[in-house]
């Protein structure tokens, strides 16, 4: 998904920066295209790293979500604190047959999202979390 975004933005930019100065001001200026190209070649494996870094674990009493390579963030959400579990799937996600699970607690700062799950897994996770949330439900 993010690789797609990267491609969508950077490929035209590379071509654009290569063609425009190349045609207007001479071929030497086409070297400007190296910058987006470098970003593209660097970004491709980095996104792979980032994708691999997204993890989640259902523990006995809480859900652990960990993500990020350069900016690491790990979140623990106790099941009893879950207010709402959403499964969302945008048009692009649907095209690749993916879904994301978004968790909400009473604190808006809790940004617990698990993107890029297979729809069956997303639904299983949603049902499981709702069930656990009901069993361990606590007030505010």
């Amino acid at each position: 998904m993010r690789r797609l975004l990267l491609l969508v933005w950077l490929v035209p930019l590379t071509i654009g920066t290569a063609l425009l100065p190349g045609l207007l001001a001479g071929p030497a200026w086409a070297a400007f295209a190296l910058l987006p190209l470098a970003l593209l070649t660097w970004g491709w494996p980095m996104l792979g790293h980032n994708w691999r870094s997204w993890r989640y674990a259902e523990r006995a009493d809480d859900l652990l979500i960990s993500r990020g390579v350069l900016w690491r963030e790990e979140t623990v959400v106790p099941y009893g604190r879950l207010q709402l579990v959403e499964v969302t799937s945008g048009p692009v996600e649907r095209h690749f047959n993916l879904a994301s699970v978004q968790l909400h607690t009473a604190a808006a700062a809790t940004d617990a999202r698990i993107p890029g799950l297979a729809p069956e897994e997303a639904e299983r996770l949603r049902d499981r979390l709702t069930e656990l949330g009901e069993a361990r439900s606590a007030g505010l």
Partner: peptide, 27 residues
């Protein structure tokens, strides 16, 4: 406590430091 988060940026990683956020129900 509603959730606990551990956060570390690249510079903080270099200095072996990290933030721990504790979120409460009053936002």
């Amino acid at each position: 406590v509603q959730s606990v988060r551990y956060e570390q940026g690249p510079w903080m990683r270099r200095k072996r430091l990290a933030h721990v956020h504790v979120d409460t129900g009053a936002n």
